[in-house]
Design a protein around this nucleic acid. Structure first.
Length: 574
RNA sequence: GAUUAUGUAGCUCAGCAGGUAGAGCACAUCCCUUUUAAGGAUGGGGUCCUGGGUUCGAAUCCCAGCAUGAUCACCA
């Protein structure tokens, strides 16, 4: 990024000054009365063209075509765009045409926010437009916007650089069609789910983000430090253990839309902070929760799209309940041919090896089964599918299966080959829970760095008694990706995590002046590439001398040539 | 973290057998009273990501770094 203002930015700053000199406040304080939206006009006017004959509307000027004494402007408000027809004699008073010729044509630019009043009509080309009778500048734009044009669905000169789109999301939202809609849909997804939960009387709650023991999921946490208590604290990786404490406390159902934080890799489907909805309902089991989950997702699809089929990439996903249910063992049998039912650890190790995995003694039975599933099965489940009944070691917070103590009552929902939701019949036997935590410690000792810590207070809560409960967590970012046909998590987060932007350092004018650089030279020295005093000092003085005078000559600067003595004098003062 | 691609004007991109840096849009000036991504004419605008190296000469070739994307690893 250049430190200097571009020519276009300089023009706009000059226009700003000229506006002020002309007595026009480029940033007026008073409200601007708006009585219509662009899309509302475009929808209603064709059916009744007596409407909108005294319309007042505000937004951003996105394009401008000046045809002599008349101009066409595209005005963009929060919902859409409409064309304005601006005629010199209609916005000027009497013979004085300066408002049109100077203020509108010269001092205003694409990107400025304006308010207009006028009446709606249809142009000869058949486009519904506003014939402007009054025009007011509401906010001057000093940075030129990227100009994106579109005709018949073809976009020209799209603003597409991901770095700029994500770092400057505001620009992305202004110029790229459809970006706003994705985020509106994101909010609708959450609203739809909230309605679904509230209708059944479940309580939305908030639980700690800063946790002394980061529990509830096997993941590496971010750590921080609390000064007053002088203890380490962690950003939560899950809120599960807190929500279950609330079920112990006597709520029938609690849920939270939670930001979780995991200190792991970033890619198209992972951001360090992400949103998860977790819900826990007393006196239910995972079979009930499957019904509940598929109904919830069906409702979300209907609320967003009015139908249950949603296009994702090349796949048409059918979210109509009920979803298919497959046990993990059947899934592995189906996709590898191996029936691992009733196998012990060494038998599974064999299968694991046969399937081409590298044997690793730190990996327990469950971890191997999980890898086999992840590698061989997961990607096959394009249509929503519940995978159920996971091995017990993989699920330390989940109740053992009612029919088979090797398994747990757990399901994960897969869509388009990706995990979307995860749920259990929750473990509420405190002794069993203690033993499972203990097993996790042993796994940790074997080298599994994702094994969980023991949360003593959570065990204490279970000792008081937790009703049979089912809990479910669902990744909101992923759900939104599916519902908006977004290929990347960065497209459904307003501000995805990025590496910090490089900040170019620059010495101030005062610092340059302090070593004796004449005011006239300061900006030219910067422009010639010497932004800091230390850059001057480090440069070879003869090269510096040549560079600066070369710059002067090349740019035909109307200032005296630099002499070497003068230059040496500056450098000596740094 | 690994591999790889990309980084040139405000935006989108050409240029790269090494020899004065280009286009479209945007911008400026002038002309034009209803245009439809674009009315006409003329013009200005560049640390070719950064730093080294090779060379008489580097946007172009080599090395390192930075940023971004993709793939993989990591992520139940």
């Amino acid at each position: 990024m250049s430190l200097e203002l571009s020519e276009q930015e300089l023009f706009r700053r000059k226009s700003l000054e000229e506006l002020q000199n002309a007595g026009i406040n480029p940033y007026p304080a008073e409200l601007f009365e708006v009585n219509a939206k662009t899309t509302e006009i475009l929808e209603k006017y064709p059916t009744d063209n007596t409407l909108f004959q005294k319309v007042s509307i505000a937004g951003r000027m996105m394009s401008r075509r000046i045809m002599g004494a008349a101009s066409f402007v595209e005005l963009q408000d929060s919902v859409g765009r409409i064309q304005l027809y601006i005629k010199r004699d209609d916005i000027c008073e009497g013979e004085d045409t300066s408002f049109y010729n100077n203020v509108f044509k010269k001092m205003m630019d694409i990107g400025d926010i304006i308010g207009v009043t006028g009446y709606v009509f249809t142009t000869q080309m058949g486009e519904i437009s506003i014939h402007v009778t009054e025009l007011k500048l509401l906010s001057k734009s000093l940075k030129p916007l990227p100009i994106v044009k579109e005709k018949d669905g073809v976009v020209y000169d799209a603003f597409s650089d991901p770095e700029q789109r994500y770092r400057q999301r505001y620009v992305d939202l202004i110029v790229n069609e459809g970006v706003k809609d994705t985020f509106i849909k994101r909010t609708k997804v959450i609203q739809s789910m909230r309605e679904f939960f509230n209708a059944q009387g479940y309580l939305e709650v908030e639980t700690p983000i800063l946790q002394a023991i980061p529990g509830g999921a096997a993941a590496r946490p971010f750590s921080t430090h609390h000064n007053a208590l002088n203890i380490p604290l962690y950003l939560r990786v899950a809120n599960e253990l807190y929500l279950k404490r609330l079920i112990v406390g006597g709520f029938d159902g609690v849920y939270e839309f939670a930001k979780d934080f995991r200190n792991e890799g970033m890619d198209r489907t992972h951001n360090p902070e992400f949103t998860v909805m977790e819900i826990y309902v007393a006196y239910k089991d995972y079979l009930w929760m499957m019904d509940f989950t598929e109904k919830m997702i069906e409702k979300v699809a209907l609320d967003l799209h009015g139908k249950t089929q949603v296009l994702f990439g090349e796949n048409q996903i059918e979210f109509k309940a009920p979803f298919r249910r497959v046990t993990m063992i059947d899934a592995i049998k189906e996709h590898t041919g191996y029936d691992i039912k009733n196998m012990n650890e060494s038998q599974i190790l064999n299968v694991y090896g046969n399937l081409g995995f590298v044997k690793d003694p730190s990996k327990g039975k469950a971890k191997m089964i999980d890898e086999i599933f992840g590698e061989k099965c997961e990607h096959n489940y394009i249509q929503p599918t519940f995978i159920i009944d996971y091995p017990v070691e993989m699920s330390p917070l989940c109740k053992k299966h009612r029919d088979n103590p090797e398994l747990t009552e757990r399901f994960e929902l897969f869509v388009n080959g990706k995990e979307l939701a995860n749920a259990y019949t929750e473990l509420n036997d405190p002794i069993d829970q203690y033993n499972r935590f203990y097993d996790q410690m042993k796994l940790a000792a074997r080298g599994d760095d994702e094994a969980m810590f023991i949360d003593q207070d959570f065990l204490r809560a279970l000792e008081y008694g937790m009703p049979p409960t089912s809990g479910m967590g669902i990744g909101i970012d992923r759900l939104v990706m599916f519902m908006t046909n977004s290929n990347s998590i960065q497209d459904v987060l307003f501000f995805p995590q990025m590496r910090p932007e490089k900040k170019a350092v620059q010495s101030t004018d005062e610092e340059f002046a302090a070593i004796g650089v004449p005011e006239l030279w300061i900006q030219h020295i910067r422009k010639a590439g010497f932004n800091t005093l230390s850059a001057l000092k480090e440069a070879n003085i003869n090269k510096l001398f040549n560079d600066l005078n070369g710059f002067r000559k090349k740019n035909k600067l109307d200032i005296a040539a630099m002499n070497l003595a003068e230059l040496t004098e500056w450098i000596s003062k740094i």
